[in-house]
Simulated assay, not measured.
Amino acid sequence: VTPSVPEGPLYCPLLEQMREDNLNNNNTQVNLVVVCIHGIFSSLGILENALIIWVLGFRLRQRTVASIWMLNLAMSDFLATLTLPLFTFYFYSSHSWELGYPLCIVQTSIFFFNMFVSAFLLAAISLDRLLLVSKPVWSKNHRSVARAWKLCALGWLWAALNTLPYSIFRSVIEKADSRKLCYHNFALYLSSEDSLEMDCNVRQGATAISKFLLAFFFPLVVIAGSYIKIALSLRNRHSLFSQSFTKMVTSVIAAFVLCWAPYHIFCILEMAAQYNKKIFKLVQVGLPVSATFAFLNPVLNPVLYVFSCPHFCVRIRQSLGAVFDGLVEEGGGLLTTPARNLQAYIKRRNSRDVSF
C-alpha cells in the first residue's frame, strides 16, 4: 500500500488545534505587565552575567576550578538572557511570532541549550563541592583547571546534542487568525498521513520525557543529594557552618525547582492536551507563563552562586576584582569562608580554654 501524499504541509493534531484556537491575548494591561516583567528580567540577567563573565574571564588573577564552573554557567546564562528580548517582543505582538524563521530557531536552540547546560553544570558544581568536603585529599590530587575545562566542554557538547531535536522540528506556523506560532511541528520530517498521529505522539512524548529526566529530575537528584550529604557532614563538625550553608542550599534547590518544575509539568500535560479540551486550554495559558519562570533561572543563578558569600556585604566595599577573587579562590568561596570562621573560632576558644 502506497502512503498517501499530502497536498500541503502536515501538522500534528495538537498543532492543528493550536492553529484553529483563538486564545484571547488582547488584554492590553496584562500584556503590558508581562512585557515590563520580561524587560526587567532581560536587563538584570544580561547585566549580571556580563559582569561575571568580565570579572571571571578577564579580571581574575588566577584561574581555579570554581571560577571555571562559574564562568561557563555565566556564559550559558548570558546567551539565554540575550534571547529574552525576542520572547518579550512575542508577548508585545499579542502572542504572535513576527521575527521570522531564523530567529525562531535561534531563540529555541539557545533556550533548550541553556536548559541542558545549566542542569549539567549545577550537577557538576554540586558533585565538586561534595568531593571537596568528603574527599579533600583526593580532590587536591585530581582537581585541576584543565580537567574542569574538559568537563565543561563535554557538558556543552552533550547539551548541543540534546538540543538538536528541538531545533530540527521547530517551525513558524500561521494560525487561522493570521498570528504566527514559533513552535515544534513533529510532523515536519519523515511523516505521512497514515503515520501522522503515531509519529507525533512518539516524538512529542520522547522529547518531553527525555528533557524532564535529563534536564530536571536526574540533575535535581544529584544536586539535592550532594548538598544534603554536605550539610549533614558539616553539621557534625560544627553548627556555625551548617546554619548559613543550609540557607544557601535551600535557596539553590528551591530556585531550581520553582523555575523549571512548572515548565516540565506543562510539557508533560501537553502530551494529553489533544484528547482533553480542559487540559488543552490549561496548557495554552500555562506553558508560556511557565517558560517565563524558566527564564528566571539564568537571572537568579548569579545571585545564588556568586553573591551568596556570607560576607559579601563586607567584601563589596573592596574592589570588584578582589571580591570575585575571594569568591572563587580554592581556599574560599561558597563553602570555605565559614570554615575559616570556624577555624578562627576554635583558635579563640583554645586560647581561652585549653580543655576545649
Rank of each mutant, 00 (worst) to 15 (best):
S242D: 05
H238D: 14
L23G: 07
V314D: 13
R147C: 08
A176N: 14
F112V: 08
N162G: 04
R317H: 12
D21K: 03
Q243E: 14
N350V: 05
A159P: 01
S126N: 00
Q107W: 03
I168Q: 06
E20F: 09
F112Q: 03
E329C: 08
V137M: 03
S242N: 06
Q274G: 03
L234W: 07
L240D: 00
N162H: 13
N350F: 10
W149F: 10
Q62S: 14
L342G: 02
E330F: 07
R147H: 10
G8N: 12
V252Y: 06
F295M: 14
F307Q: 00
H38R: 02
Y275E: 12
Q107K: 11
L258R: 00
N236L: 12
L213D: 02
F295W: 05
G39V: 05
F116C: 11
F218E: 06
G331Y: 00
N114C: 11
N185D: 12
L79A: 15
L190E: 13
K247I: 05
S144R: 09
L10Q: 10
R235A: 08
L213I: 15
K347Y: 09
L15C: 05
M271K: 03
Q318H: 08
F87Q: 13
F169I: 02
T28G: 00
F307G: 01
S319N: 12
L56D: 00
L157I: 11
I173A: 08
I37W: 00
S134C: 09
T337M: 06
L130T: 00
A339P: 00
S226K: 03
G8M: 03
V55H: 04
L300Y: 07
C267W: 07
N236T: 12
A254S: 14
F212G: 09
A187R: 03
G333M: 05
G57P: 11
Q284F: 01
L296H: 14
L304Q: 02
E193D: 06
I279H: 04
N162A: 05
L154W: 07
P3Y: 04
F218I: 15
F280H: 14
E197H: 10
V137Y: 03
C313Q: 12
H264L: 05
C152F: 02
R59S: 05
A272K: 10
R19A: 04
F218G: 06
D77P: 01
R237L: 13
S242F: 14
H38V: 03
L214Y: 11
R340Q: 09
E7M: 01
S192I: 06
P219Q: 08
A148E: 12
I253N: 07
N25R: 11
E193I: 11
R340Y: 11
L47M: 11
F113N: 00
G326W: 04
L161D: 07
A231N: 13
N24Q: 09
T163H: 02
R203M: 07
E48G: 01
Y11A: 02
I125M: 15
N27Q: 08
F112S: 02
F89N: 09
L56Y: 06
I68A: 10
I105L: 15
L14N: 12
K281M: 11
M18Q: 04
I279G: 02
S308H: 10
N201R: 14
Q284W: 03
T163C: 09
